[in-house]
Nucleic acid binder design. Structure first.
Lengths: 107, 107
DNA sequence: GTCGTAGTTCGACAGTCACCGTACTACGCC
DNA sequence: GGCGTAGTACGGTGACTGTCGAACTACGAC
């Protein structure tokens, strides 16, 4: 059928699809770690333009894509703005303590 | 003086030298994750030859070097055998919950 | 001394990755 | 409609990384 059934704008992995290795690989980059830290610090959604990272827009899109594919962040489209949020519930449920351990680290 | 003062055979980072990013990067590889899992499962030292990994000896040496540099594992030389152990104390002190979260993950 | 075993070192090679600039789409406002 | 802004897609490039085989060192046993 050609009607607009559900029409998911962005693809995210289901909770069961998230793997430790994918998450670790996603977090093992200074830029992505900075993104996650900012999302965790505010505890709110942040638009791409609201993230403070030392890379260009295209590179930022690249990193957000990796974080999204790994199941670390979720994206919500609203107009031309894309709001990113941390999938804390899923990560804490799958890997309890992991995210807190990473975020608590001084460096 | 040229006497044998302490004479550390293998160089490991001090606890303060360990960084989150380094640890994450070290763990973000299936082979290294398998090594860490085996070390954690037994809770004891394991010689290089006692590790079950699908790579050659030289590649295994390479991975152990990365894990050691990151401060994840410690190596102790005894004759021609090198015993590897998990630096659980240091990791738990620096990043509480991180290692447990990783190890508890089903995949 | 000789031999076998444990592990490291040294290129070399293929694949991946972070990064960028440019071009493009989509939305909102005038 | 026309324009500016938000973000994505694409193509390319340099750097890093995982992998291997072969050569090497070091220790222990015979």
């Amino acid at each position: 059928m050609t009607k607009t059934d559900t029409l998911p704008p962005i693809a995210h992995p289901a909770r069961e699809e998230i793997t430790v290795e994918g998450v670790l690989r996603a977090l093992a980059d200074p830029v992505r770690l900075a993104i996650v830290r900012q999302l965790a610090a505010t505890g709110q959604e942040i638009a791409c333009g609201g993230l403070t990272v030392p890379v260009t827009k295209s590179t930022l899109t690249h990193h957000l894509g990796i974080l999204r594919q790994a199941g670390v962040v979720a994206g919500r489209q609203e107009g031309t703005t894309r709001f990113n949020s941390l999938r804390r519930n899923d990560l804490d449920a799958l890997f309890p303590g992991l995210l807190d351990g990473v975020l608590a680290a001084p460096r």
